[in-house]
């Protein structure tokens, strides 16, 4: 079973971040929210591992 990766793991992080922001260009708030929800589900399915998903759900809750 894999652990949740919480160290840098995306090559060219700046490119990724830009692509993510651009995906929202021209979308209304409502469409943007819906897009985020779909993206989240696509990514979650790719990860698949239930324990990793649970770890991610709780890791993202932490704000400080």
């Amino acid at each position: 079973m894999a652990d949740l990766t919480l160290t840098p793991n995306i090559a060219s992080g700046d490119d990724f971040y830009e692509e993510l922001i651009e995906a929202h260009d021209g979308l209304s708030k409502e469409d943007s929210d819906a897009y985020n929800a779909r993206l989240l589900l696509v990514l979650a399915n790719h990860i698949g591992d239930r324990e990793v998903l649970s770890a991610a759900i709780s890791a993202a809750k932490r704000k400080t």
Partner: peptide
């Protein structure tokens, strides 16, 4: 509600969302 509709929208095109 948003997540529910995202599941429905995805399941039209992608098999993975249908079991949800």
């Amino acid at each position: 509600h948003l997540l529910r509709n995202a599941v429905l929208e995805l399941s039209e095109h992608y098999e993975f969302a249908r079991p949800l």
